[in-house]
Design a protein around this nucleic acid. Structure first.
Lengths: 359, 359
DNA sequence: TTGAAAGCGCTAACAT
DNA sequence: ATGTTAGCGCTTTCAA
């Protein structure tokens, strides 16, 4: 009897289908009407509810396929269900590191059936606050954040947690908030970088350091200092200079070479600074790596393109992104309250021309 | 009398406020309850409906501000209203050009009160199709697309238009679909690049060309050919080699220097290829720019970092993004059917070391 | 000038 | 095994 209904209605299906297609999506109602059953039955059939007959389920599934029905995520999230969107806030998309992180996030999230919504803070606290509001009002299921350089007040991030929305920090974390974290092993990176400079014979190793307010700045510097100490070098505070971008490097680096004790090795907090330093140094007439060896941090495209190529600490941004997404989705799909995790992504020294001293 | 009600209710406001905050957002209902009026009145007051009294409007506005009420965009878009989200599909976020485009889109869209949702196709047709579904099911108000290299079938993009959702192409456009477009003036870019090589005295100018299926590949090549012709050079098809990435350049470029007539000028379809070519050429023992001058396309960070620095055609990605967002939002806010526009962003030759022949 | 009711697409408790 | 109802937050007739 059920089948008869279907057959009878079938004459109309084409017309109905077309009408609804134009209007937008096919709805659960259309399916129900076509099959002569109620919307809730359709809903249950679709969700594999146990007490719907096999025949009905099959009929629903067939029509769903035929009409290309897709449940409306908006309606779902209005109901309070998950939106299956995860929000991401990064400081700057143009940075190679962050763009690789984003790729990692996207790939993992898409594979798990989530969509991703990106916002950038442009390193501005206010934009970061706004981004949080944007994401919350879009009902994202969870949020991934790498905090901006100018963020000192964390109440907007705390608000996320208070709303019960899973939060994962990556790279630039906030220590004050208990959340999952994915960090790069900056300390070891800094250590290995400085150690390498020591091993190739540098005696006066300077560090162009990042913002000490950020953990990544601290970590890289601490690693540098540890390497020096462990190799019986004296750590000289004057050899650590705040300088984390090309513009500053252009001004600051020449000053270093006016000192009585000039650097013969430089570890810079990022590739851009390293590259700018290298440029300046060569313009001053020193040879790289013979007179001055240089190590950067991030190992983006940049490091292959300079002459000499730049030895740098690879951060594995893609992995950072994947792990961050994985952590978040794990929590989304497994809501019991487990202790927060911190994943540390290993860094890796990639040796290239700027430290390649033929012995 | 109205005011009395408000005052009376005020004792409870704190408690109510807190309860609702926890549960999520303040709703229009809460405002109504607090003020002792109906939700529909609140809605009208908020939307400046003419027949709501001034007092009511004011009271509503005050409480809205006090309780920090924000209308729920999900509910709005369920109602069929705009989501105020615009969707963007780019081939690869890691490309400097696209990341600057994204910045431009984000800035303009945010200023206009829109949120942005990004997807990347990773140059894969299937991911592009999926991205379209993602965005449509998220009820975006409009979509910006730069088509992937592997896309030959455009039905997924046509679907967007058929659903009545404004579509704007940027950079990699689809000619078959009538839509707003923002393109870079590739032809002129190619022209100026080749002309510059001619002017500095190159006699044998080769072109490392991009995919000819893409308009950008065609445009750059056409500009190159026009420059040659206009300067009475013979255009030799053998001097135009398909080669648009570092890996290919590493293999192909050395071959060029085994020919009887070697290039003394190279115009590459993008910076990465140009940089790779430059590297290879210098390794072969030629001097840049003295023996071989090189021009790239895009002028990203890359071009400042090489030695010599790379002369390149600036594409103004940020502007492309802004214009694309502007075009889309213009259409969203002005729905009458106007003819489609094409905005052309001028390119600009940025002369640097790789063509700097001291005369 | 305000309110009640219906409906956007969907689900879930509660009938039948 | 299937249907009815109510409700998520909001807007919008239509009635009062």
């Amino acid at each position: 009897m059920f089948l008869r209904v279907v057959l009878k209605e079938n004459f109309l299906s084409q017309a109905i289908s077309i009408r609804n297609m134009n209007k937008g999506q096919v709805t659960i109602k259309d399916i129900a009407k076509e099959l002569g059953i109620s919307p809730s039955t359709v809903s249950k059939a679709l969700n594999g509810h146990p007490d719907i007959s096999k025949d009905t389920k099959q009929a629903v599934r067939d029509l769903v396929k035929k009409w290309n029905y897709v449940p409306d995520p908006i309606a779902l999230s209005l109901k309070g269900g998950p939106s299956r969107i995860i929000g991401v806030i990064v400081p700057e998309i143009v940075h190679y590191f962050f763009s690789t992180v984003i790729s990692g996030i996207e790939d993992w999230a898409n594979d798990a059936g989530y969509h991703v919504m990106f916002c950038q803070s442009s390193e501005q606290y206010l934009k970061e606050v706004k981004a949080v509001d944007t994401l919350l009002s879009s009902r994202v299921d969870g949020i991934l954040v790498s905090v901006s350089k100018s963020t000192n007040d964390f109440s907007h991030l705390r608000k996320i947690v208070e709303k019960g929305i899973p939060l994962v920090f990556f790279d630039r974390i906030c220590e004050e908030i208990d959340a999952d974290r994915v960090i790069v092993d900056d300390e070891t990176g800094g250590y290995v970088a400085a150690k390498h400079l020591i091993e190739i014979g540098c005696k006066h190793i300077f560090h162009l350091s990042g913002l000490q307010r950020l953990l990544i700045g601290q970590g890289r510097k601490n690693g540098y200092m540890r390497a020096l100490r462990e190799h019986n070098f004296q750590v000289n505070e004057n050899d650590i200079i705040d300088c984390d971008n090309m513009e500053e490097a252009a001004v600051i680096v020449p000053e270093l070479f006016k000192r009585p004790v000039k650097p013969d090795g430089i570890f810079a907090v990022n590739d851009l600074t390293a590259v700018a330093a290298m440029r300046v140094i060569m313009e001053l007439g020193y040879r790289v790596p013979e007179d001055v060896a240089i190590v950067g941090f991030t190992s983006g495209l940049m490091s292959d393109v300079t002459n000499p190529t730049l030895t740098s600490v690879e951060q594995h941004g893609y992995m950072v992104g994947r792990e961050a997404a994985r952590l978040l989705i794990e929590r989304l799909e497994n809501p019991r309250e487990l202790p927060k995790k911190t994943v540390i992504i290993k860094t890796e020294l990639v040796k290239k021309g700027s430290t390649d001293r033929k012995k």
